[in-house]
C-alpha cells in the first residue's frame, strides 16, 4: 500500500513538472531543456533554507519559486529574442551550468554529497511525515498549479501565448509585445518547476545533483510530448505513463541498475514511436508539426 502511495506521490510531483513545462513548451512553443535546472533550484533553495536556517516550508517554497523565476530571466532576457534553435542551445548551456553549480560549488551545496536531513514540513504544528499526508501535500500543490495554468491558458493572455506559438510575427503585427509574454510564461513555468522541486525535497528529505541533470529535463519533455501538449489531460497522462509503466519492470526480476537502463530504453523507444505514429501524443491539443 505504501508503495502505491509512493508511486502516486511521484505522479503528482511529475504532473506538476510536466504541466509547468507544458505552459512554456506546449502552449507558448518555447523549446527549453533547462527545466531540471529550475526544478533543482527550487529543491536546493528550500532545502538549504530549511536545513541551515530552519525556515518554514511556506517561505522556503516561495523563496525557491522566486529564485527560479529570477534565474529564468537571466536566461530569457538575452536569448529569447534570438531564433528558437539558439534559445534551445542557450537553455542547454544554462542547464549544464546550473548543474555544475549544484555539483561543484561544494561550500554552498555540498556538491555530489548532497543535502541530507531536510525536515518534514509543518503546518500549524502538524508535521507532514506519513506517506498519505505527503500525497495530500503533493496533490494540493499539483492541483493548484493545474488550475492556475488552465485559468491562464483559457484567458486572453493564454490566447496570445497560443498565437505566439503558431505565428509570432502575426501576433506582433497585432500589437502584442511577444517578447514580454514569452518571458512571463517562461518565468511562471520555471517557478512552478521550482515548486515541484521543493515538494520533492521535502518528500525524499535528501537531495543531490543527480536528480537535476539534463537527462531529467529530457525526461520531463518526453512526458509533455507523450502525454500531449496544450490539452488539460496531457500532462497528467504523460506523467502517469512514464512514472508507472517502468515500475512494471521492477516486478520482472531485473537488478535495479539494469531496470533503470531498461526504463530509459522504454522512454526512448516510446518517444520515437510516438513521434512517428502519433505526433499529438495521447491527449494533445496542439501538434508540433509545422
Amino acid at each position: 500500500m505504501d508503495y502505491i502511495v509512493h508511486i502516486l506521490i511521484l505522479v503528482a510531483i511529475y504532473s506538476l513538472l510536466v504541466v509547468s513545462l507544458d505552459l512554456a513548451l506546449g502552449h507558448t512553443g518555447l523549446v527549453s531543456v533547462a527545466h531540471a535546472a529550475f526544478y533543482g533550484l527550487g529543491a536546493y533553495t528550500s532545502s538549504l533554507l530549511a536545513v541551515r536556517f530552519g525556515v518554514t516550508f511556506g517561505v522556503g517554497i516561495l523563496a525557491g519559486m522566486l529564485v527560479a523565476a529570477l534565474a529564468s530571466f537571466l536566461l530569457s532576457m538575452p536569448s529569447l529574442r534570438l531564433h528558437e534553435d539558439y534559445f534551445m542551445i542557450a537553455s542547454f548551456g544554462f542547464q549544464m551550468i546550473v548543474f555544475n553549480i549544484f555539483n561543484n560549488w561544494t561550500e554552498l551545496t555540498h556538491g555530489p554529497l548532497g543535502i541530507p536531513g531536510i525536515p518534514p514540513p509543518r503546518i500549524l504544528g502538524w508535521k507532514i511525515d506519513s506517506p498519505l499526508e505527503f500525497l495530500l501535500f503533493a496533490c494540493f500543490f499539483a492541483s493548484l498549479a493545474y488550475f492556475l495554468i488552465i485559468r491562464l491558458t483559457k484567458s486572453p493572455f493564454g490566447r496570445v501565448l497560443h498565437a505566439i506559438r503558431e505565428d509570432e510575427i502575426f501576433a506582433q503585427a497585432l500589437g502584442k509585445n511577444t517578447l514580454r509574454f514569452k518571458m512571463i510564461a517562461f518565468a511562471i513555468s520555471a517557478a512552478l518547476a521550482a515548486l515541484a522541486g521543493s515538494v520533492y525535497a521535502y518528500y525524499v528529505s535528501f537531495i543531490d545533483p543527480t536528480s537535476f541533470t539534463i537527462m531529467e529535463s529530457i525526461l520531463i519533455m518526453s512526458m509533455v510530448i507523450i502525454g500531449g501538449a496544450g490539452g488539460p489531460w496531457g500532462p497528467l497522462i504523460g506523467a502517469a505513463m512514464l512514472v508507472m509503466l517502468p515500475e512494471e519492470l521492477r516486478f520482472m526480476g531485473f537488478s535495479s541498475s539494469i531496470a533503470a537502463n531498461l526504463r530509459q530504453i522504454l522512454y526512448g523507444s516510446l518517444l520515437v514511436i510516438m513521434v512517428i505514429f502519433r505526433p499529438r501524443g495521447m491527449a494533445g491539443r496542439f501538434g508540433f508539426g509545422r
Partner: peptide
Amino acid sequence: RLITAISVIENVLLSRPNQTREHL
C-alpha cells in the same frame, strides 16, 4: 498569416486592442 489552431472568431478577438485580461 493566421492562427489556424484557433477558431475564426478567436482570431478576430485576438486582434482587438487594449484587452485587460491579456495582462497576467
